[in-house]
Design a protein around this nucleic acid. Sequence first.
DNA 1: GCCAACGTTGGC
DNA 2: GCCAACGTTGGC
Length: 172
Amino acid sequence: MMARGARQTPPLHIRLAHSVAYWLMKSEPGECSIDDLVRLGQVPWVGVRNYQSRNFMRDEMRIGDGVLFYHSSCPEPGVAGLAEVSSAAYADATQFDRQSPYFDAKSSPDAPRWQHVDVRLVEKTELLSLAAMRERPELATMRVLQRGNRLSITPVTPAQWRAVKALLARAR
DNA sequence: GCCAACGTTGGC
DNA sequence: GCCAACGTTGGC
């Protein structure tokens, strides 16, 4: 379901069959940190309860897509590692779990409202802090840096991806 | 803890 | 279908 008043817009570009797309995915380290991902190798990206973010996972992500693993709502927000999409989207089990903070009484197993992908670690990196990102003109267009942005999953352009990788390489 | 920004809900 | 009220996000 789209937000009321939102227009159905066609994709901005046609995704080539074997092309890779890039994403930034926010996680609160208290919930799942980069060290948790290092330990587990892969995590189900459960708990997203926003339609736009869900749609990115459900409709646009492909296995192998690049992910900037971003720590949010913490003392030092920023990109903490690189990861990749490692599954197609599937139903989020937490929406049916009454004990879960992500329980959604309005969702039913016949028509699961929330879906998610799995995300696999590529590497933990030096933290590229939000403050450092804001200083870089080549990152100025990143969605995560835009005023008022609250989306937990945002697309990253190939140029932005390369720029982040270059900064991480330099920090090494 | 504050608060701006934005999404969602629900009365009408 | 409008829109005010409310809840959440997340940086600071």
